[in-house]
Design a protein around this nucleic acid. Structure first.
Lengths: 335, 335
DNA sequence: TTGTAAGCGTTATCAG
DNA sequence: CTGATAACGCTTACAA
C-alpha cells in the first residue's frame, strides 16, 4: 500500500498550485479548459480521492447524520419499523451525499456518545422513550428530528396512531361487531394513550358503549397479549372481536383463542397494529395497520437535512397516515 | 449557539499551551497534578469537547468502520440476520470507541461510495453476492471482513451452512423419516451449494439413497417454496418430510401442505433454516436452524479492528456453528 | 486564469 | 513538567 496521493501530489504533477486542483475537483469555475482536462486526467491516473476529513475540518461540515435506534434487539428485529426507517433515512441521505452513523447501546450511553464525539451534523432519534433523559440535551446541542415521537417544540415525523387504531376498530364495527375487546400497551406511554384514544374514538363515532371489562393492558409482547386476551375472553358476554395495540400482542391473542378452541375469524375477529412480518404468516394471517416506516425515514432525513442547511422547511412536524391491511383474521360477526 | 470552544480557548484560559491541554484530555503523562486538575475544571466548565475531525486528520484514523448491507428491503426486514449482525457490530465497535457507518443502496453505488469517501478505517461486508463486482476493488483498497461469505484469501466470519443443514436433516432421519424432500436455493449461489451439500451429506452418513424427484430449487422466497413443495409432494411415494433451505420457503411449503390437506407434522414434517421471527409464529411453529448472527457481527467487528490496528489475529477466517431449533413442525414419522 | 498564504483544531516532536 | 512549532490535507480570500 503506497502513500495516499494528496492534492499536493496532483498539483505538483500538473505543475500548478493545490488551489487549482481544488477548483477542479469541486467543480468551481476559474480554470482553463485545457488545464482542467489535464488535471482530471492526472486524478484518474493516480486514483486521487479528496480526503473528506480534511475537507470537513475546513468546511465545518461532516456530511454525516446520526441515527439513534433503540437498543433492544428484539424490538429492532421483530418489528420491521426500525430497519425500515433506517433504510429510508440512508437512502434520503445518500441522495444528498450524506452518510449515516448508527448509534445503539444503552440509552444514556448512546446519547452521551453522540454529543461527545461531534461526528454528525444532525440527528435522527427513532422511537426514543419520551422520558429519556438525553432528550433535552440532544435537542439543545444538536439539530434533531424525532421519529415516531411527538416531542413538543421539536421537529418530528410521526404517524397518526389514533386515527390508525380508530380506522381498524371501525373496520371491525363495520363487520358487525358490537363487543370489541382492546389490548393496550403499558400505561403512561404516549403511544399507549394514543392507541387507546383511537379505540375509544371509534366507539364514540358509532355510538357504541365501551365496556371496561373488555379492556386490558399488555407490554407489547406476545405473552402479555395471550394473558390479556384470555382475561377478556372470559367476560360475559364474550366479545366477538379483539383489537390489540400491536401485532405481537395480537399473535398472543390468536394463541389464546386457539387455546380456548375459538376459531378465528369465525368465533373471534382479531386485528393488530404494526404489520410486522410475522403477521402475514400466522394462521389465519392477521389483519393489521401498517406504518409508512420507510417513508418516515426518508421524510425525517430530508427534514433534517433542510434544518442542517438552515433552510426553512414547510413544516417541522409531520403526521403521516397509516394503512389498514385486511387479512383473514377479521370477518363478519357470527359467520 | 456560541462559537465552539476549542483547545486553544482552554489553553488560553488556563494560561498554558494547547499541547498541555491535549496531554490532559488524552490522558497522557507529563502534566503536574495541579495543572491537570485546573484544566479538567476548565474543560467541564466550558463544556469543551475535542473535535474528532481535527484529531482524525492528524492521526489518520477515523475511528469509524463501514458496514455494507444488502439493499433489498425485504431481505433486511424479514430476516433478523442483517439487523442482528449490525447490532453485534455496533456493540463491538462501541467497545473500542469506534462508530459504524451504514452503506446501503444499489450494489455498485454503495461500493463506489465507500471507496470514494474514505470515511472509514475498514469495512464489514455483509452477505454480498459472490459475483459482486465491487468485491475485488474493496478487498484491494480497504481492510475488509466479509460476513457470511467465504471469499478466498479474504478475512471472513461465516457460518457452517453444510453442517447446519446436515444436522437438521439428520434430525428428520432420526425421527424415522426415510423419504425427505429438499427445497434448495437458486443454482450457482455458493450458499445454495453448501446447503444442498449438507442434505446430501446427511443421507450419505445414514446410508440413505437420494432421490432426484424429491429435490427442487426455489428462490428463497415464499412463493417458490410453495411451488417447489407442491411439486415434491406430488411424487410417488410422497415424502414424509421436507427440508427447505430457508424459512421463507419452508413457510411456503407449509402452505402447500395445508393446501393439499396434509397435516403438519402428522402427515409431513417440515424444517427450515434461518430462524426468522415468523418461524415461531406459524401454525405449527417451524423447526429450523438458527444462525449466531449477533455474535457474527461482534466477531467480525473485533477481527476487523484487529486488522485495522495491524495486529495479527488468531484466525482470519471464522466458521461458526449453527443451532438446531426443534419446534412443532417436525415429528416422528407416521404418527 | 492561476498562485500565495492563512487557517480549520488537533497531535507529535523537540527543546527548554 | 511545559512550550513552540510543524505537520495532517484541504479550502478560500486575496493577490498577481
Amino acid at each position: 500500500m503506497s502513500k495516499n496521493v494528496t492534492i499536493k501530489d496532483i498539483a505538483k504533477l500538473a505543475g500548478v498550485a493545490p488551489s487549482t486542483v481544488s477548483r477542479v475537483v469541486t467543480g468551481r469555475p476559474g480554470v482553463g479548459d485545457e488545464m482542467r482536462a489535464k488535471i482530471w486526467q492526472l486524478i484518474k491516473e493516480h486514483n486521487y480521492r479528496p480526503n473528506s476529513v480534511a475537507r470537513s475540518l475546513v468546511k465545518r461540515r461532516l456530511e454525516t447524520i446520526g441515527i439513534l435506534v433503540p437498543r433492544g434487539r428484539t424490538a429492532f428485529f421483530e418489528n420491521p419499523f426500525f430497519a425500515d426507517v433506517l433504510m429510508g433515512a440512508t437512502e434520503a441521505a445518500a441522495q444528498e451525499n450524506f452518510d449515516v452513523l448508527v448509534y445503539t447501546g444503552s440509552r444514556e450511553k448512546k446519547g452521551a456518545r453522540v454529543l461527545q464525539e461531534r461526528k454528525v451534523d444532525g440527528l435522527l432519534a427513532v422511537g426514543l422513550r419520551e422520558d429519556d433523559a438525553s432528550i433535552p440535551l440532544i435537542k439543545e446541542e444538536l439539530t434533531t428530528v424525532f421519529v415516531n415521537r411527538q416531542i413538543k417544540d421539536a421537529a418530528w415525523v410521526s404517524v397518526d396512531n389514533k386515527e390508525g387504531v380508530s380506522k381498524a376498530v371501525a373496520h371491525l364495527i363495520e363487520l358487525g361487531h358490537r363487543q370489541i375487546g382492546f389490548i393496550g400497551g403499558p400505561e403512561k406511554m404516549e403511544i399507549s394513550e394514543l392507541r387507546k384514544a383511537g379505540y375509544l374514538d371509534a366507539h364514540r363515532k358509532f355510538g357504541l358503549a365501551v365496556r371496561p371489562e373488555y379492556m386490558a393492558a399488555g407490554n407489547f409482547d406476545e405473552e402479555s397479549g395471550y394473558a390479556a386476551a384470555t382475561k377478556i375472553l372470559n367476560s360475559n358476554p364474550r366479545p366477538t372481536a379483539i383489537f390489540a395495540a400491536n401485532d405481537l400482542m395480537a399473535i398472543g391473542a390468536l394463541k389464546a383463542a386457539k387455546n380456548l378452541s375459538l376459531v378465528v375469524p369465525d368465533d373471534l375477529s382479531l386485528c393488530g397494529f404494526d404489520n410486522i412480518h410475522s403477521s402475514s404468516h400466522t394462521d389465519p394471517p392477521l389483519s393489521t395497520v401498517k406504518l409508512p416506516a420507510f417513508q418516515m425515514g426518508q421524510l425525517a432525513c430530508q427534514l433534517l437535512l433542510q434544518l442542517i442547511r438552515g433552510e426553512e422547511p414547510e413544516a417541522r412536524q409531520l403526521l403521516l397516515p397509516t394503512e389498514l391491511i385486511v387479512r383473514q383474521s377479521s370477518g363478519k360477526v357470527g359467520e
